[in-house]
Design a binder for these strands. Structure first.
Lengths: 353, 353
DNA sequence: GCTTAGCACTCAAAGTTGCGGAGTGCTAAG
DNA sequence: CTTAGCACTCCGCAACTTTGAGTGCTAAGC
């Protein structure tokens, strides 16, 4: 059986309508659409064929049709009309993003919240290094009796620090020796290279400050590891309750309980080698708990060798056109924002001085 | 009308039973309790009086009674039996807490999750300074052409840093001058004291590095402000769905939408001058959206001049005894954990060296 | 040969009715 | 003061009916 243009048109209309109403769509409703110039009987025949072809489903005899997974898939890939963002929408996204984002993890929380708000669906956001973070430079600062501040500059323009307290008193000189040793031996190493042998080697060379070494090595290795891994945030789970398919609390509960960071952690991974926007329709989903939901996600650029990702989770019947449009715009705006030189106040270097 | 011992006993039984079953409690059910040596008729009379006294309510004639707000209040204050945690419970709380908590905000998220899990209710956690955070010492590190790392030691043993990039090239010497200036003028100041006048004064003294000053001043002031403010985290909102009172999605949605950080931000403030565990029953609640829910909260000690708070939000019919017991135990364990010297690895300073 | 009007048929959703039972308040007796 | 007894109320449930949206099929029309 062939998928004629008219069948496509009918299918598109069915999906569109179902997305709007969340109710099975009948032949009459389709026939009454402005640019549908056939009677309900004709539509009925087309819908019957679309059903045998697997694009539509019938909840029970004498009900309208709803899209099947294959129907959504075709709709997303070929049929759906581009959704054009209104000025209002682009503007509200932009003003939302504009506030300066500070640390990456805070930023992710915020982005997830914003995306969730913009789509009225649960949203996730994640950031991951391209991997290969190393320490670029170590600096030790004397901070009073028994206290030392360790400052580590990482590749990718990040700086971290830790206050270390020891029941040993050290001299400025000792710290200088140690930091020289650290810079000589521990820069440019991957986290796996922080072996016990390295530890003893550094301690041997460290002189009076050897007691500091284990703390420093552990902290650095730990930090590199955590920097290499993926951070993510989830927000707006409750928005699912607004969707008619989750009027049944039991269903809602089942899905929502699988909307946490652990359960969703494979989504960012899926995007690694993808480009553009990806849509997972219902049963294509990875986590089995999400069998009845769809996922839309897309990538953005954080700079500093980091890769960001935002996505939403919603009922299979979601407004793919609108959601993908908003998501893409979001990703674009975020990329732009991070591309801007981060120093906000290019010093208005006052005339005085 | 007087609140006799027998009335109290009846009231306690009604609340206990209602907490367990979430159904209106009838006189017969009470009369059949093991240590209730009166007939249902007598109980009926008592219940009728408790109702006119405002401790109980009747959803409609010929239904059982449910506790009114005043009933819960009396129950919480006087009647409820102590809940003794089982070994299992204390143990699972302890193992949960044991993992080392890193930064304060991550810690809060984790704690909120744990509390939510332990009580099966939405939970919040917050931390706030006692206020009065100031910068203790500034340090500038030269980090290659046009890059400088600013390290600020705060009172209360915290260290923060920022990488600053400028299209101006600076010498080591310039940085030394500037850090001396910063340490001389900007230590010990409250965030309000970072005025434009201060900025110009520091810039005048800063010499070649004056271009850095605005960035540094802004960043420091901003950081002090954010350190002084309250951090909080909310977790487990969806757990409400497990409660029978929220089988109705509309109700659930209304309450859950008010379970975010903003709406709950006055709760931590309420604890500032309170000690022990505080219970807000239904209509006593601050936010009007929470009129039909209760809040239980308690404080814990983070050390470093910080004050922590954990709490849960749940249906007015919640198991106050169990919840307060678990919450208190949690707070206690957390306080203990933070009291321990934080440096985990008192260097096992190997013999070599 | 495609399109469409017409019709009999199906089935979920919504409304109707009628019980059974849990619970109450009151009264009168112990 | 306590309790057995009784009439009364009202919710919840289940069985039944009605309604109407929607279908598939057939036969007539362009």
């Amino acid at each position: 059986m062939e998928l004629t243009e008219r069948k496509k048109k009918v299918l598109r209309s069915v999906v569109d309508l179902y997305i709007r109403t969340a109710e099975p769509v009948g032949s009459k409703a389709i026939a009454e659409l402005p640019d549908m110039h056939y009677s309900s009987a004709t539509i009925r025949n087309e819908m019957a064929e679309l059903t045998t072809m697997g694009y539509l489903e019938q909840p029970h005899t004498s009900a309208g049709r709803i899209p099947a997974a294959a129907g959504y898939r075709l709709y997303v890939d070929e049929l759906m009309a581009d959704y054009r963002l209104s000025m209002d929408e682009t503007q509200s996204i932009n003003t939302a993003i504009e506030e300066k984002m500070q640390r990456v993890d805070k930023m992710l929380e915020k982005v997830a919240k914003l995306v969730s708000q913009a789509t009225d669906l649960p949203a996730i956001s994640a950031a991951s290094r391209h991997s290969g973070v190393t320490a670029k430079r170590f600096e030790l600062i004397f901070a009073g009796e028994g206290s030392v501040i360790l400052v580590v500059m990482l590749s990718h323009e990040q700086v971290i620090n830790k206050l270390i307290k020891l029941p040993v008193s050290l001299q400025q000189g000792d710290l200088q020796v140690l930091s020289a040793v650290l810079n000589a031996t521990m820069t440019g190493l991957a986290p796996e290279e922080f072996t016990p042998e390295l530890l003893t080697r550094v301690m041997d060379a460290a002189g009076n400050a050897a007691a500091l070494v284990p703390v420093i090595v552990d902290f650095t290795a730990e930090t590199l590891r955590s920097q290499g891994s993926t951070n993510m945030a989830v927000a707006g789970q409750m928005r699912l309750l607004g969707q008619p398919e989750y009027r049944d609390v039991d269903k809602a509960q089942k899905v929502m309980s699988s909307l946490d960071e652990e359960a969703l952690s494979n989504l960012p991974a899926m995007m690694q080698n993808q480009n553009g926007t990806k849509v997972l329709v219902g049963p294509e989903n990875v986590a089995s708990e999400l069998k009845d939901t769809s996922v839309v996600m897309t990538k953005f650029d954080i700079g500093d060798g980091m890769q960001g990702m935002i996505g939403v989770v919603g009922p299979t019947r979601m407004d793919y056109a609108k959601v993908t449009a908003r998501l893409s715009y979001f990703a674009e705006s975020l990329s732009k924002m991070f591309a801007k030189p981060e120093t906000p106040a290019l010093p208005e270097a006052k005339e005085e001085q």
